[in-house]
């Protein structure tokens, strides 16, 4: 095996995996706090891709040139609006079902997912959309002195990895060191008790949806800048992949989401590179099923104890 191919797949996997990890945060936090799979989370990510392109184009019409300023403004706009979408979805489709039967929120989530997809399709069209390249530049790391092969890392790729881990660090800090984070953890442990102790659990649940959507928005923007093209259907596949990452890492665990994301990204990338790229999605889904069957608590999760 050529070392440079190995290195290149490693880089690709890491980049892919860190975006999975960012989106997985939304699944894992929501599952942790209300025990529900937020099926529409992938669509939230998809919306953030559109918002990224729209804001980029908007700033372009104002003639803004400075790349860092543009990126920061687009990031701000995308994160804020995507978070608002996340908040609204929870408010409209999940909160009224808080005390309903077990299937209701899941079905509602599937409904929301259909709504969001088609809302985008109708208003933005079904065709592929794109963004112009904003950051270019590549680092080449020589891997083999003899025949001049390189492992390539674009500047954008490194920005993705750095941003992903930095936002995870910020989120983890918020959860562990702020009053808001403490309220989140309390609500996750025991919603009824937290409520009795004066935590506004409805607000906390909203906050969790907002945080999840914000992370998905960061991922959405980075991936959009990286690949340059997207359509209204990208949320579905990305959603399952990110959910797989959450399961791999142990659903409910924040560091688990990132770990699961990176592991899935690497596994997928190596499978595509060395086994068969047609079946890489099949491989990812099989991984999901196998983990749910044999190790539902993932790498870092705690096994659920059935309450009788």
């Amino acid at each position: 095996m050529d070392i440079y191919i190995f290195g290149q797949q490693w880089v690709n996997g890491l980049v892919l995996g860190s975006t999975y990890g960012l989106i997985a945060v939304g699944y894992t936090m929501v599952y942790g706090i209300i025990g529900m799979i937020n099926f529409a989370h992938g669509e939230i990510y998809m919306i953030s891709a559109y918002l990224t392109a729209i804001f980029l184009a908007l700033l372009g019409t104002f003639g803004l040139q400075s790349v860092p300023v543009v990126l920061v403004l687009v990031l701000l706009g995308t994160v804020l609006l995507t978070a608002l979408y996340g908040w609204s979805v929870e408010r409209i489709a999940y909160r009224p079902l808080r005390n309903s039967n077990r299937l209701a929120p899941l079905i509602s989530a599937i409904g929301i997912s259909l709504i969001l997809q088609n809302y985008i399709r109708i208003s933005q069209g079904a065709r592929n959309q794109g963004v112009p390249p904003v950051i270019d530049g590549v680092w080449r790391i020589p891997a083999n002195a003899v025949d001049q092969h390189f492992v390539q890392i674009t500047h954008l790729q490194s920005l993705i990895v750095v941003t992903a881990f930095a936002s995870m660090a910020v989120l983890t800090w918020i959860i562990h060191h702020t009053a808001l984070g403490r309220a989140c953890r309390a609500t996750q442990q025991d919603r009824v008790m937290a409520n009795l102790l004066g935590v506004d659990t409805d607000r906390i649940i909203s906050v969790v949806f907002v945080m999840g959507a914000a992370m998905a928005a960061v991922a959405g923007m980075l991936v959009t800048l990286n690949y340059g093209s997207f359509d209204f259907y990208i949320g579905f596949l990305m959603g399952i992949k990110a959910f797989t990452a959450a399961v791999l890492g142990g659903i409910g665990s924040l560091p688990g989401a990132m770990l699961g994301g990176v592991v899935l990204g690497l596994a997928e990338s190596f499978f595509a590179g060395f086994v068969n790229s047609d079946y890489k999605d099949v491989f990812a889904f099989s991984l999901l099923i196998l983990f749910l069957i044999f190790r539902p608590s993932g790498f870092l999760g705690v096994p659920e104890v059935e309450k009788v």
């Binding site: 799979i37 399952i240 797989t244 399961v247 099989s286 999901l288 099923i289 069957i293």
Partner: peptide
């Protein structure tokens, strides 16, 4: 799969459906 937590079934069947289609 059926001995798992209820919501997991939804995801496993979803994944299975996609696997069949992709194959």
């Amino acid at each position: 799969v059926l001995r798992l937590h209820g919501d997991y079934l939804a995801i496993v069947t979803l994944g299975f459906g996609e696997i069949i289609r992709l194959v």
